[in-house]
Amino acid sequence: MVKISVKPTGIIRKFTDQTILEIPSGQNSEDIIRLLDIPHDVRPIVFVNNRKALKNQDIVDGDELTIVSLVMGG
C-alpha cells in the first residue's frame, strides 16, 4: 500500500474532498479518477507534485495529487 494526498480544485470539489488515501501500489492517475468516482464529463486531469501527470503515470508513496477539471468557460 502507498499513502498519497489528494487535493481537488474548483468544480472537482463537487465530487471529492481533500483527503489522504491509502491505495494498493501500482495504481496510476486514471485509476485514482475512477476510485474517486469523478465523472469523465468534467474532463478531470491529474497533477502529481505540481506537474501534469503523464498518461497512466504510476502513483508512488508520498505523491501529492491535484485534480483539475478542464471545463472552462467565458
Binding site: G10, I11, I12, I45, V71, M72, G73
Partner: peptide, 15 residues
C-alpha cells in the same frame, strides 16, 4: 457558479 465556475482549475492548467 457561472462561467468562472472553474477558474481554479484553469489556473492550475495555466489558462
Amino acid at each position: 457558479n457561472g462561467t468562472a465556475a472553474n477558474l481554479e482549475g484553469a489556473v492550475h492548467m495555466g489558462d
